[in-house]
């Protein structure tokens, strides 16, 4: 029982990180129909910038803030320089552009920073908290809290604020949104900034647990993509549930079946889900326009 509890706790922690990445995917996908494979690099940048700002002598909260703001600026730059000029390009081209961006950012990161593994101290110490015979790191609670706060914040943003509704309107029908006076370019900029900031936040929160290096981005991108797909592309609740589910499946596979195949579990589940319900758990069925 304690063993199961332990797997569940570690699964939820990892899952919360996936959920944050998946939420980032969701925002950009909604605003622009682009799946941004560079999403994982935002996580990497969040962690790396914080590490290096902290090493330069800044306190962690300030370093984290700089990292999140800097990554958000990076997201805006990505949109302005690579995504906007390619508007209307086919899916394959967009996939290659964002993967190219991901490789590019990785290359810059290993040049500007280094190739080492880094971490910084956990926010509330490293003394494990005991729950039902299992233990959880205080930092894991930070990750969980982060995922929940971001999800609730996004929900409020999209349903309660005019700007958030403008984003939703743009995702439903770009032309119609333009016609009612929404500045869709600004909506895109905002979405990329927001999405990058959320990715960076995930990086800041998870670095004390898992360490960070310039190359971790692509793994987060793939898992976050899988999580978003599992929950249903473009649905924030789906991203949250999909992320946590994916984390749990991985942890249980690692615990009971085989630790080397824990990464495989995620993709087996994705394949099964896509076979059985091709639009994910919370996704709407898509129809073709002739």
């Amino acid at each position: 029982m304690a063993e199961l509890m332990q797997f569940l706790l570690s699964g939820v922690t990892v899952g919360a990180v996936y959920a944050l990445v998946a939420l980032g995917f969701t925002i950009i996908y909604n605003a622009s129909d682009v799946v941004n494979f560079a999403q994982g690099e935002f996580v990497m940048l969040g962690g790396m910038i914080t590490v290096f700002a902290h090493m330069a002598g800044l306190p962690i909260p300030l370093a984290a803030l700089i990292a999140i703001a800097g990554t958000a600026a990076m997201g805006v730059a990505l949109n302005k320089l690579a995504i906007e000029p390619a508007r209307g390009a086919p899916v394959v081209s967009l996939i290659i552009i964002t993967i190219g961006a991901s490789i590019f950012i990785q290359g810059v990161a290993q040049l500007v920073f280094d190739k080492q593994l880094h971490r910084f101290p956990a926010f509330s110490g490293d003394t494990p908290i005991s729950i039902f015979g299992a233990t959880i790191l205080p930092q894991s609670l930070w990750v969980l809290a982060g995922a929940i706060v971001v999800f609730v914040g996004l929900w409020a943003f999209f349903t309660k604020t005019l700007t958030g509704r403008a984003v939703l309107a743009t995702s439903n029908n770009r032309l119609a949104a333009q016609l009612v006076g929404i500045n869709t370019n600004w909506v895109m900029t905002l979405s990329f900034a927001l999405s990058a900031a959320i990715g960076a936040l995930a990086g800041v929160l998870v670095t004390p647990i898992t360490n960070i290096s310039y190359g971790v981005g692509i793994a987060y991108a793939l898992k976050g993509f899988a999580a978003a797909m599992l929950g249903g592309m473009g649905v924030p609740l789906g991203a949250l549930v999909g992320g946590i589910l994916l984390g749990l499946i991985e942890a249980l596979t690692a615990g009971y079946l085989s630790s080397v195949y824990k990464d495989a579990a995620a993709f087996v589940v994705i394949l099964i889900v896509l076979f059985v319900m091709p639009s994910g758990i919370f996704g709407r069925k898509s129809t073709d326009r002739v």
Partner: peptide, 13 residues
Amino acid sequence: QILLGLVMMLCMI
């Protein structure tokens, strides 16, 4: 890596 990423992006754009 930087150049490869750039080539990929520029060609597609």
